[in-house]
C-alpha cells in the first residue's frame, strides 16, 4: 500500500524502542503475576504502541476527556500489553505494572472498565468487544461527535457467533467511525486456529459483511499508521485491519508457538526474554544513530 501519511524514520525508531520497552514490561509483569498470557501481548505490542504513540487523539493527563478516541479490547486476556502501553504513555506510573493480578490492584487479570485510567471496557469472555465498540460508535454518531472507536480483537474469538452479529450490524449501519484491529496470529489455546476451527478466508468473510478490509504486517509501524489513516478516509463502511502478527514476537523461544498462548515465563525464561529484548532495543538505538 502506498503510504498516505508516512511516519518519518526517526518516529519509527522511537516507536520500535517504545514497543520493545513495553514487551520488557509484559515479560516482567507476567513473571511477577505467576499466571497470564504471553504470546498475544507480545504479538500486539507494536499495534498498541502505534495506537497510543501515533494514532489516537488522547491525553494521558485528561484520560476521560469527552472527545477522546475510544479503545475497546475484546480479547481481555492480552491486557498486560494494554496496561504496559498505558503506563509507558503516562496514564499511570510504571511502578504499578508489577501489581498485575494481585489482590487490590487496579490491574485485573482481565480488564475491568475504568479500574485504571485509560481502561475503557470490561472484557474476558471472548466475542463481546465488537458489540461494545459498535454501541460506542453509535453513541458518537447520535451526538455528532468526531471521535473514533478502535476495537482490538483476537483471531480465534471470531469463532464466537456474537462477533458476526456485531459485524452484520456495523455493516448495515455503515459505521465508518469504527476501526477493528484483528490480531491474526494463527494461534489459540488448543493449537493453531486453522486446526481448531478454520477462520479463513477471513478477509472474504468481512468483505461479505460489508466491511472495508486492510491487511498489514502487524509489526510494521508505517503500515499500522497508514492503515489507521486509510480507515479514517473510508466513509462508506466500517474498516477492519487484519494485522498479521507473530505470537510471542521479540522473544525467540516464544515466537509462533501456540503453547505460549496461556502461560507465563518462569524466572529463567523471563531473564532470557528480557535480555533478548534489551539487546534488541540497544540495536534499534545504535542502528538509528
Amino acid at each position: 500500500m502506498a503510504s498516505l501519511l508516512t511516519l518519518s524514520d526517526s518516529e519509527e525508531v522511537r516507536l520500535a524502542e517504545t514497543a520493545t520497552r513495553i514487551r520488557e514490561h509484559v515479560v516482567e509483569m507476567l513473571l511477577a503475576a505467576g499466571s497470564g498470557h504471553s504470546a498475544g501481548p507480545l504479538g500486539m505490542a507494536d499495534v498498541f504502541t502505534a495506537l497510543y504513540f501515533s494514532i489516537l487523539n488522547i491525553d494521558p493527563a485528561d484520560p476521560w476527556k469527552p472527545d477522546r478516541d475510544r479503545v475497546v479490547l475484546s480479547n481481555g486476556h492480552i491486557c498486560p500489553v494494554w496496561y504496559a502501553t498505558l503506563a509507558e504513555r503516562g496514564y499511570f506510573p510504571v511502578s504499578l505494572l508489577p501489581t498485575l493480578r494481585q489482590l487490590g490492584s487496579p490491574l485485573q487479570g482481565h480488564t475491568h472498565i475504568r479500574s485504571a485510567p485509560g481502561v475503557e471496557n470490561t472484557s474476558g469472555p471472548l466475542g463481546q468487544g465488537l458489540s461494545q465498540g459498535v454501541g460506542m460508535a453509535l453513541a458518537a454518531s447520535l451526538d455528532g461527535a468526531g471521535w473514533r472507536t478502535h476495537v482490538l480483537l483476537s483471531d480465534a474469538e471470531h469463532q464466537e457467533g456474537q462477533i458476526w452479529e456485531a459485524a452484520m450490524f456495523a455493516g448495515k449501519h455503515r459505521l465508518h467511525n469504527l476501526t477493528a484491529w484483528v490480531d491474526r496470529n494463527n494461534i489459540q489455546i488448543d493449537g493453531y486456529t486453522e486446526d481448531v476451527m478454520p477462520l479463513e478466508p477471513l478477509r472474504a468473510k468481512y468483505e461479505a459483511f460489508n466491511w472495508y478490509v486492510i491487511e498489514i504486517d502487524g509489526h510494521n509501524f508505517k503500515a499500522i499508521v497508514d492503515a489507521a489513516r486509510h480507515a479514517e478516509a473510508i466513509y462508506e463502511r466500517p474498516t477492519v485491519v487484519i494485522c498479521h502478527t507473530i505470537p510471542g514476537r521479540g522473544v525467540d523461544f516464544m515466537e509462533r508457538d501456540y503453547r505460549w498462548h496461556g502461560v507465563p515465563p518462569d524466572r529463567e525464561q523471563a531473564r532470557r526474554a528480557v535480555q533478548e529484548l534489551r539487546s534488541l532495543r540497544g540495536r534499534i538505538a545504535s542502528e538509528a544513530e
Partner: peptide, 16 residues
Amino acid sequence: AEQNMMGIAAGLAICG
C-alpha cells in the same frame, strides 16, 4: 441477535 443487542446497549450506556 440478542447477544449483540446487549453488547451494543452496553457500549451506548458507557457513552452516556
